[in-house]
Design a protein around this nucleic acid. Structure first.
Length: 397
DNA sequence: AAGGAGATCCCGACAATAGA
DNA sequence: TCTATTGTCGGGATCTCCTT
């Protein structure tokens, strides 16, 4: 059954784009900015305060209420990213002037509206209707009000929303479990080696260089779409130190370059150049596929005194992150830690047996985490297929 | 190997236009 | 004419690519 399409302005009020806020120390009002508008919900804790003057001056309709749907109105990466307000402190949060606020009337279920914009079809409609050039795209409330959405009767909307919500919460549970395993790895380091700042167990202090057999920069050659090997770049290492193989580029290497730039299981990958917060991201290569690395990554291999998991664990610990932040040279907008400096980083040298034990336990945790990731993959697939069917009338009769 | 610099993203400001 | 809403622009911060 195909649902009729109805103009958005007939289904909700589109309250949008207040004045640009004046920032201040108010404890009474907060502004919700584009970055805080996420499909998982609004990140209330990160909304900066604005002055009372703004709050008083603005119409009370701007204050967010439960059931409001938010839609980012600018930015190539953010335009159309939706969020639904589920629980909000009343009369406190105001959307920024680049966020469209949609308040559904009685014929429209807000959660249904949210999932519509979240769905590939909803996103595509936004993509077709924005104004502006490639790097400055916008979707005004006016244009938004002309958009049409498929509209089943209210009980069906509610049913669809509930099914999608259940599938989504399954995904979120898997994600939370994965996050827990990450936390577990971090606390394991402290448990086994103690706080490096205190060094209660009196391990010998040395440098990272002492533990390495080889330090090598990646290639600066350009990526090539039909390349032979995946080409790891900085976005392939997460802040927590895990490899992320999504969004890969490719490269072809000459025979001579292969040993120089290919990585193998157990290599530590260090991100030497990035923004100040992200410089020093360190991943441990844990795959048997052959991949190459870019020039802003440094490939290091340990000697007989170390297990790479130990160095990885240290550089991703709180103490390690602080050390890295303290040493990077910050040029305008960029931070850098070169290979020489990397090797001078002070690190405790626990006995290799203990390091190996740590590695074993981390690997066990990682194994569990893999399971959770597989489960997430499945729940993602389920959610996506439900979403495809939902708005075509194939989900609820 | 090192880091300079262009491209992109996002925010804030303000000009232009519409409405009261 | 004044005020509210909408469209567009400038620029800092960050991300990537490219040159020396």
């Amino acid at each position: 059954m195909i649902y009729p399409f109805v103009k958005l302005s007939d289904l909700c009020s589109i309250i949008t784009r207040g004045k640009a806020p004046k920032y201040g120390d108010s404890t009474q009002f907060n502004i919700v900015k584009s970055a805080q508008v996420q499909p998982t919900g609004v990140l209330w804790d990160e909304c900066p305060p604005v002055t009372d003057k703004f709050g008083v001056g603005c119409s009370p309709t701007y204050f967010l209420q439960n059931g409001d749907v938010l839609l980012n109105g600018t930015g190539t990466g953010t335009l159309g990213r939706p969020s639904i307000v589920r629980t909000v402190t009343p009369n406190r949060f105001i959307p920024d002037s680049h966020i469209n606020l949609l308040r559904a009337n009685d014929d429209l279920n807000p959660l249904y509206l949210f999932y519509w914009f979240f769905s590939p079809r909803g996103q595509r409609i936004i993509e077709l209707n924005h104004t502006g050039s490639t790097n400055q795209i916008e979707l005004s409330a006016k244009r938004l009000s002309y958009l049409k959405i498929p509209l089943p009767p209210l009980p069906v909307q509610k049913k669809i929303a509930a099914i999608l919500d259940a599938a989504d919460s399954l995904r979120q549970k898997d994600k939370a479990l994965i996050a827990k395993y990450t936390e577990l790895s971090q606390s394991l380091f402290l448990e086994m080696f103690g706080d490096p700042a205190i060094n209660k167990r009196k391990f010998k202090l040395g440098t990272i260089g002492d533990l390495l057999a080889e330090v090598k920069y990646g290639t600066s050659s350009k990526a090539d779409e039909n390349g032979e090997y995946p080409y790891l770049r900085m976005n392939n290492i997460t802040y927590e130190g895990y490899m992320d193989f999504s969004n890969l580029k490719y490269i072809t290497l000459s025979e001579k370059d292969k040993p120089k730039y290919l990585v193998r299981r157990g290599d530590l990958l260090f991100n030497r150049t990035n923004s100040k917060e992200l410089v020093g991201k360190t991943g441990l290569y844990n795959s048997d596929n052959e991949m190459a690395i870019a020039g802003y990554l440094i490939r290091t291999r340990v000697n007989e005194n170390a297990n790479p998991y130990y160095i990885w664990g240290y550089l991703n610990s709180k103490h390690g992150k602080l050390t890295l932040a303290g040493m990077c040279k910050s040029i305008v907008g960029m931070a850098n830690i070169n290979a020489k400096e990397f090797q001078t980083i002070k690190i405790l040298h626990p006995p290799i047996e203990l390091q190996n034990q740590f590695a074993e336990r981390i690997e066990a945790i990682e194994k569990q985490k893999k399971q959770a990731e597989l489960s997430l993959q499945k729940s993602d697939d389920l959610f996506n297929s439900l979403m495809q069917k939902a708005f075509k009338g194939e989900l609820v009769s």
